[in-house]
Structure formats: C-alpha cells, structure tokens
Design a protein around this nucleic acid. Structure first.
Lengths: 156, 156
DNA sequence: TATTGTTATACTCTATAACTATA
DNA sequence: TATAGTTATAGAGTATAACAATA
C-alpha cells in the first residue's frame, strides 16, 4: 500500500484489449464452420431448453431488436426455426435443427479450444485465480451505473 | 486435465463484460472533470514528451482520422494546442496547456481510484496474478490475426 | 514515392420509437 | 396496461478514400 499502484496503470484498457484479441480469434476460428460467436451463443442456449427470443436475447446480452436479425440468419441457414409457443401466442420458441445442433457442437469444441489455447501457457493455479477474479469483475457489471451506458434519447 | 474445462465456458465474454463495466465506470468518473478516457489517455501521453498526432494515435490505439477530432476537442477546450514541429513541417506537436496538465493530473487520480476500487476487494497476491496474466493476454493482441479485424474494402 | 494531417463519407453496430398481436 | 416480436431508422463510433503539403 505505497504509492498508487502504477503497475496496472490501465486495467480497463488491458481488459478491453485482451477481450478484443480473444474475440477476434474466436470469430476467426468459428468462421471456419460459418458461425459467429453470437450465433454459437444463441444456439447453445436454445439447445439447453425451450426458450423464446427474448429469453435468448437476455442470455446473450442482446437487445430484442438485435435478436430478430440473429434469428433470421439462423433460420435462413437452416440451423434453427421459429415455432409458436404452446402457452403464449405472442412468443416464438427458437428450435434448433439437427443441422444446427451439429454446428453448435462443433462450434463449442472450437470455442473450448480457443479459450484453452489462450490460457494454456499459464499454470493451473494462476488460471483459477484469474478466472475467479475476472468472473467477479464481470459480475459487477450493472451494479454501479444504470442499466446501460450513455445514449441520448431520440429527439435530443 | 479432465473434460474440457467447463468452468470458464466463455472467457472472451467475461473479458468483454468486465472491460465494458470498468470502462463505463471510468467514463462516468472522468466525466466529473469533463474528460473522456480517450482525452485523458492522449493528454497523459502528450505530457510525457513532444509527440505528433500520429504518435499519440498509435499510443492510444486510435486511427489518425479519429485523432483529428480528439485533438480538435482538446484544442477547443483549451487543454492542448497544435504546434508546428521543428523538424517536420508536415507534423503537429500536441502541446498540453497548463489547464490541460491540471486536468490530466486530476484525471489520473480518478483513473487510479477507479482501478484501485475495482480490485480492492481481492487479496494482493490474486491481483498480482490477475494483472500478470491479463497483461500477457493483452500483449498477444496482434500476434494471431492480421492487424485489424474484418472490414470490407470500399467498393464491395 | 511515401508520410502527416485533413476532410468527406461510407460502413457496422446497436438501440430507440412506433406498431401489431396478444396477455 | 404491459409484453413478444417486428420494422424502420437514428445515432455513435470508426475506418476507407482521396487530397494537399511536405519529406
């Protein structure tokens, strides 16, 4: 507890750069099977159980309007289908097709490989500490500011 | 070394979320002294020594065209000035004014505080491990893919 | 021929607003 | 009245292209 720890001058920048680096690698790797990280994420969550677009959007951290296009794409490529919900005629359940399931499973192997490779150089204990702390930091997401960052309302 | 370590299912997502969270907090805190993280970053680097716009852009991870607007803003607010380089008549040295120096120093205290707060809850050893690993991850930025992520050329 | 800084503009991404149909 | 999904579009951010001055 001496001078303000200059070692980590810019933690936020390190986080953003590391995040971009990994995301780019992930996107490049998933592109080999024609998937985006987002599509992969949605497919995986949709496989777990019957979920509506809004539920999937929340899980993926997307807006419902962004989700429309994402699902359009999945449907166009035959990886998933919109089905009427049995309990709410407004809602659409996103059902993953067999083709989609196979793609998602291969995608998941790729995701695991990329993440594994990124951390492979470090000892297991360090990885555990890192992931623990990182998880806690990520959780503190909406605790401080409002639900979302700045964005002026329409007529301003 | 058992099944693919499911613990860190999505490291890249954690990194991005933690990065956004911290960046938002940083932006909110710096807004109190009317600075953006970017302006703060440019001011600090410009204070260290005489630097041109392009040099500052590289240090801040910005495009030179983005830098123009950033410097415009700093100049308009009287925090910095464009000065002719003594050695290259094409180049502009970004000189920080006294007002800019004071703002940057206060900004740096805020940056240190926010970063300190974010990590305060964790033991020093964990922080050290975390920052070490994070720094290594961030360094691996351009090692894999090309210099920048996708962007179709103009006429495509 | 290459580079600094500039302008203009085009592209991507995402969210707001307004709407329909349900609840 | 509120919510799921849709559309259209506005806004923010950033990069490409083309240019003038200079190297």
């Amino acid at each position: 507890m001496s001078a303000p720890e200059r070692t980590q001058l810019d933690v936020s920048r390190l986080l953003n750069e590391a995040g971009h680096a990994l995301t780019n690698r992930l996107a490049a790797a998933l592109a080999e099977v024609d998937l985006t990280p987002r599509a992969q994420c949605v497919l995986i969550h949709a496989l777990e159980e019957d979920r509506t677009q809004i539920q999937l959007a929340a899980l993926a951290g997307l807006d419902k309007t962004t989700m429309v296009g994402t699902v359009d794409e999945l449907e166009k490529r035959g990886l998933a289908e919109r089905r009427a919900s049995a309990t709410d005629r407004r809602a659409r359940i996103i059902a993953v097709t067999e083709k989609g399931r196979l793609a998602a499973e291969e995608g998941q192997r790729i995701v695991d490989r990329v993440h594994g490779d990124a951390l492979a150089a470090f000892p297991a204990e360090s990885r555990a500490v890192f992931l623990d702390l990182l998880g806690a930091l990520a959780l503190s997401r909406d605790e401080v500011a409002g639900p979302h960052a700045v964005r002026r309302p329409r007529g301003a």
